[in-house]
Each structure stands twice: as C-alpha cells, then as structure tokens.
Design a protein around this nucleic acid. Structure first.
Length: 413
RNA sequence: GCGGGUGUAGCUCAACGGCAGAGCGCCAGCUUGUGGUGCUGGAUGUUGGGGGUUCGAUUCCCCUCACUCGCCCCA
C-alpha cells in the first residue's frame, strides 16, 4: 500500500495553504492593530506544562496528548494548545516585569482525537493572550479582536458570539458544589456520559446534548445565582463594554470551558456549518494560570481559533497573484531567457520560466499557471533588442524594447 | 474511546456474482514562432490491503487500514 500521512494529519497543498495564509495574515494584522505582537513558543514542552494547567481530569490531558519519553528520560509532550506555552514563556523569560503584555501566535497543535471534519490530530490555531490586565476592559478588547478577525474574513454571517461568566474562583467553587448536589439528586436520570461528568467535570453536564439531560439541566441552578457581587459586576461591565463597541453577542448560561484554568468570562464564536465542530474561536479569562505554573499571580485573557475551521468557512479561494511567463521561442534563446527572467525578478516582478519545453508547451503551461502575459524572445526579437509581449487574456501582442520591458510589464501587475 | 456510512483510473462516479467503464483531467496530432475554444487519436487500474465462500468476487462474508458522519471532547 502506498505510504500515507499519519491518521489525522494532512498535507496542506497550495490551494489550501493560501486559505490558511489568508486566515493567519488577517489574524496577525488585526491583532497588530490592537497592539498584539507575534511570538511563538516551542511545539514541544515538558509534559508538566500541560498537565498542571489544563487539569488532570480533562480528556485532553488524560487521553489525547502525544506524550513520549525523550532520550534523556524526561517526559515531553507535543503541545495540545497554545496558552500554557505562553504562560510558561512568561515565567521562563521573566517577562512579568513588563506587564501588561499582548501576544499573537499561530502554529500547529496536536491532539489524538478521532478525526472529523474540521478536527484533525495535527491542527492549526491562531491565538492571542493579554497578560497582566485584571479589568473587564481587557476581556472586551480580546473579544473584539476575535470579532474583527472574523468580520475581516467575511464570516460575520456564519458565526455568532456566545458569552458567559464562570464566576471568580470563589463563586465557581460554590457553584460547582450546588451543581453537584443538584445533579446528584437526579443521578439516576442522567445519561451515562453525564454520570461520569458528574465525577470529573460537573459543569460539562450543562452542555450535554442528551435530551434527557437537557430536561434536567433546564431546571438546574445557573451560574449567576452563585456569583459574588464582584463577579456579577465584572460580567456586567464586559457586556456593557461589548455593547459600547457594537460587538453583538448572546448570553449562553450553559457555556462552559474545557480547561480548568478558565474563570470569569468565557466566550465562543460558533457556527452551525461545520457539523459537530461548532467552535471557531473560543477563549476566556484565566487569572490563576500563571500562578499554578509557579509564576507570580498574573491575570490573563485570551482566545484560540481553529485555522482549518476558519479556512473551511471561507467562501471563495483567495486569489493568488498572476505570474508573467518568459518564453524563449527556441532552445537557442534559453540563456537569454534566464538572464531576462532574472533581471525582471530583480525588478520585483513575478516571473515564471519553464526550464524546458518548446514554444507551444511553454504557452500551454503559461495559461495553465494563470499567467497574465507571455514575454516571447526569439531570434528576431533578440536581433532587434526587443521582446514580444503577449497579453494572454486578450491575445493582443506588441513588441517592446528590452530596456523598457520591466516598466511596460507593470501595467499587468 | 463508542456507534453508523464509504473505499473502483489523477479527480467525480458507473458496472445483476460472469470480458472493469464514462465524464473531466492527462498525452499526442490537426497547427515546424503562439496558449485558452473545437475536432481526431492515445495512455492509465494490484477495484485500499489480507483472508474466506464460489466454477467464477468490484459485487457476498470476516479481518485490517483509510476517509467520512454522529457521540465524546474541543479550536
């Protein structure tokens, strides 16, 4: 059997690559407008980095990480997400001296899940992190960046924003207890999945798709009942801030986050067009994270977005720039063609030069490559110090002096 | 990890258990200094892999791999 890529990994060929690039460039540019500077952390980290931060009971940590022993004996893990690495970098680099910090990143992440549409074992995320800002304005800013990226990508109509508050640490643990008590009373009626959730992550039951569960959930106590006054005010301020800058959202009291480090604001930009994979960009506040990793207590907010998911939602292929084909009429002009191509490239033009083939084949390839113009040089042209410039869309052609060629070709780019 | 569906040419897909096909694409010619449209001709398959039933398997059965949909989880 022919060699295949590892399950859940894929080759990203040029067409798809362009889509990915459009996503990352848009995200990077929009983030930069808000002051987020690009950084990147290693793809591998010491396993502890993820184990400590994501939560020992989450599926990602218990079943989905690519963890292996390094030759020196230490346990190493391919990153399943980006935030933990940034937090680790903050600590390792002593960056907390310079708070607040705004970072943008993109790159591959790895989770050993069952592949599905928009879900791969090696997938790619963009993300931003705002560290050292405790106030609700920070949450608003981060959400705005996400909203604006999606807008710029033309995805506004396909995606809606849902937000919720998980309460501060204090509210969260009291709510958790209230919830465990409530669901404990209905344990017999819960689905099998939810019974294990009750043990591992009771908040998740709120998000269950099981119909029976939903009935029980409908009457379950909600987060806000357990909020401290501070948590309540904080969430109100976030909502108000979003209203002020016209970021539309809906409240979803059942919105929960997967990783333990989240608190207060949680948000998801969701779509119904990717089957079971609804979340396109998701994030929230994670005030306890840096401290859990052994650093100074540092508030943080951020999000991660799935590049494949955004690329899948893009309506049309991003246009790629059209090359100009340099075409020697016969093999005798090949050396001149190489020299010409080189000088045009140095003038900033996008030149396609086939390394072999006759005139006919070269022109076929030129139109296949979507070239806008073919620059033909044959014996006659060279004798006069000219080239024939053929517009491949209209078929019109004219001769142009070689020393004016670069300037003339600009009208096609 | 659990459940369902699908694997046939480069791509999209046909073929009652009986000679593996079509469209697109590709190659060549019509056209020896001119592509895209047109016409003519041509090449291409271990039917995902392995095993079984059968005189005979692309077709039926089992295993396996991959893809896909849902669950779980998540971006």
């Amino acid at each position: 059997m022919a060699l295949q890529p590892i399950r859940g990994t894929r080759d990203i060929l040029p067409d798809e690559s362009r889509r990915h690039r459009l996503v990352t460039e848009t995200a990077r540019n929009i983030s930069a407008r808000y002051g987020y500077a690009e950084m990147s952390t290693p793809i591998m980290e010491v396993t502890e980095v993820f184990k400590r931060t994501l939560g020992d009971t989450t599926d990602v940590v218990t079943k989905e990480m690519y963890t292996f022993e390094d030759r020196s004996g230490g346990s190493v893990t391919l990153r399943p997400e980006g935030t933990a690495g940034v937090a680790r970098a903050l600590i390792s680099g002593g960056l907390s001296q310079h708070l607040p910090l705004r970072y943008y990143y993109d790159g591959p992440m790895f989770r050993r899940e069952r592949p599905q549409k928009g879900r791969y074992r090696q997938f790619h995320q963009i993300g931003i992190e705002l560290l050292g800002e405790p106030g609700p304005a920070a949450d608003v800013e981060v959400i705005a960046v996400g909203a604006r990226i999606l807008e710029m990508l033309g995805l506004k109509d396909k995606i809606k924003l849902e937000i919720n508050s998980l309460g501060d640490t204090e509210s969260r643990s009291s709510y958790r207890q209230v919830l465990v008590d409530y669901f404990g009373d209905h344990k017999g009626d819960l689905s099998e999945d939810s019974q294990t959730r009750l043990r591992k992550n009771p908040l998740r039951i709120l998000d269950s798709k099981d119909e029976g569960d939903r009935k029980i959930v409908a009457n379950a106590p909600v987060f806000s009942d357990s909020f401290t006054a501070e948590a309540k005010d904080f969430f109100a301020a976030v909502c108000e801030g979003l209203d002020d800058i016209d970021v539309a959202y809906t409240l979803n009291p059942r919105l929960v986050r997967g990783f333990d480090y989240y608190c207060l604001t949680a948000f998801e930009f969701v779509t119904d067009q990717l089957g079971a994979q609804g979340a396109v960009i998701a994030g929230g506040r994670y005030d306890g994270l840096v401290e859990v990793m052994g650093g100074p207590a540092t508030p943080g907010v951020g999000f991660a977005g799935g590049i494949e998911r955004m690329a899948l939602l893009l309506d049309e292929d991003p246009v790629s720039s059209r090359p100009i084909a340099v075409v020697p009429v016969s093999a005798a002009q090949m050396r001149e063609a190489i020299k010409l191509a080189e000088s045009l490239r140095r003038a900033g033009l996008n030149i396609k030069l086939d390394l072999r083939g006759n005139l006919k084949k070269r022109l076929i390839r030129a139109s296949r490559d979507n070239a806008s113009v073919a620059v033909l040089i044959g014996e006659d042209e060279l004798a006069r110090g000219e080239a024939t410039v053929r517009d491949l869309d209209s078929g019109d052609q004219q001769t142009v002096a070689l020393d004016k060629l670069a300037a003339d070709l600009l009208r096609f780019s």
